[in-house]
Amino acid sequence: MATTLKALGLTRLFGPNKAVNNVSFELSKGEVLGFLGPNGAGKSTTMRMLTGNLAPTEGQVEICGVNIIEEPKLAKANIGYLPEMRPLYKEFRVNEFLRIAAKLHNIPAKKINSSIDIAMEKCGLTHMSNRLIENLSNGYQQRVGIAQAIIHNPEIVILDEPTVGLDPIQIREIRKLIKEIGKEHSVILSTHILPEVEIVCDRVQIIDKGNLVFHGSIDDLKQQRRGNKLLVGFKKTPTLKKLQSLFDIVKIEKQEDLLHVIQFKNLDFDMEKFIQVCVKEKLGLFQVSPHITSLEDTFVQLTNK
């Protein structure tokens, strides 16, 4: 797949503080990249650099092969950006505002009307076309923000926390919209809502204190979650020593009631053999299931390294 965005060693200093430190990554066409991180990790700073709103202290950004610092106009033509604080001129009506956005992005005069219509339809704004943006609800304002970012059909759409402050139904609709946009464009999405990443994104990138701590596909992240732990229920709880004489076990943790989390040494332990031995030893085995650490835990592990 064609690479649409390339970030090389992005670094940004604010005085002595390193907000972003040597971040590099690539984005392909038709991909949704989730940008995760705790507050103040440098997500927004990175996005501002990607969109040419902030000059990097070091490093390069290439948008469809065009360097954004050397040829900002050419590069910016391929980006649609929705910052965290949505930049809406609230005194205008929805269609007036989108017309301004269309003109700013050099859409030819003949195509302006049709591109406004398409953007409004994609974002479910058609019936709000004549409303003042000021009078729209939070969710609809957010849609106007997204419509503004996709009106010129850019190769890359960058959305900074697009679902913050919306109600569950709106969140669901916006996610659906993002997935749809992701089919034709490359999307970068920042968030600190973890399930959102699993639902929407193809690839995840976790940033912490300005450093990239995880970079991989959603499956990699899931792998990281599954790991080598089993949630086991014994009626007669064996001691750690006894279990260790039977299997390669690192540690056993007591959960509520009779449930225990057993951590094996290796990832590819033999589940069948484990059950057989347990039955033979009459430990009163009544439950076995893979112990999945929550995404939150994985996130905390990764960002606490």
Partner: peptide, 14 residues
């Protein structure tokens, strides 16, 4: 104040 400058800065305009 309204933080709308990114709208102009991210458009292909100098």
């Amino acid at each position: 104040r309204q933080q709308t400058l990114p709208f102009l800065f991210s458009a292909p305009v100098s």
